[in-house]
Amino acid sequence: MGWVKRLKDGIQTATRNKKEAPEGIWYKCERCRETSTTKELRENFYKCPKCNYHVRIGSHEYFDLLFDGNYDLLFEELRSTDVLQFTDLKPYPDRLKEAYKKNIVTDAITVAKGKVNRRSLLVAAMDFRFIGGSMGSVVGERIARAIEYGIANRIPLLIISRSGGARMMEAAYSLMQLPKTCGRLTQMARAKVPFFSLMTDPTTGGVTASFAMLGDINMAEPEALIGFAGPRVIKETIKRDLPEGFQTSEFLLEHGFVDTIVDRKDLRETLSDLLFLFEESKLAAIGKGEGSAEMEPAEEEFPGEEEG
């Protein structure tokens, strides 16, 4: 006999009332298994306070971390549809309903416009909790519209990727989001509006093979899984174990595909710096050559030299 008598048998909480981490009071780290409070976690930029593991957070957490204050959501009216009447073990509409029921996001990417250190930025952030962050028509369309919006209003764009790849339930429609988003990105490049890509854990498949790799600046969160094929598929193909650290952010940086790895606590500042450095007035000044604003103070710094 135990010391405590259970009054009711079994778990009483219905599945739908279960809280998704990190919304409870405690957070148990997926990597180091240490426990901290969710308040500590949030104050530590959703990184494990013990081991710096970057927790897989959603679109809105990123908006909260990045923007100065309020932000506007864009293109929320776009919703996924079951264009192929796709049924595997479960009909696609059921999968969509389940994803909506979580009541977190309206698709695997959410677009928001706000300010980072007083400079405008569009952020399109993926959310893994919506069908594995998979890219279907809505993801492609929201990105395409975000690019159009960025071009029209001359606002830089940050896409935060966190995706297993294509949404198989939309088959070739999903595949066509690759040329669609890349085509739009060429227009953004021509318009000289900067595009920043941040790859987070995980970024694989069609997302990596399109916009995620095409940033003017490619950034990655530490230790994220980034690749084209998934590790399991590669292992089955080459029939041997994969080396340690294979397909991590650090691996990609060493092989030349990522510009910089950014700890989540520095993300806001890094973006703020990038927006400062890419600011159009500054770029225009460079174009003017000698008469640029940046050259003048340099001359004034040594006023006495000519006389001496």
């Binding site: 909260d64 309020n70 506007d72 009216e77 492609g140 939309e170 429609y173 066509m176 989001q177 085509g183």
Partner: peptide
């Protein structure tokens, strides 16, 4: 024409209810 052709590829619905346009920064 090429880029617009691909831009047209996609199937989606438009949500009926007007979504919340402005999102307040959540309390920390």
């Amino acid at each position: 024409v090429r880029i617009e052709k691909y831009a047209q590829m996609g199937a989606y619905n438009l949500a009926k209810e007007e979504p919340v346009k402005e999102k307040k920064k959540t309390e920390k």
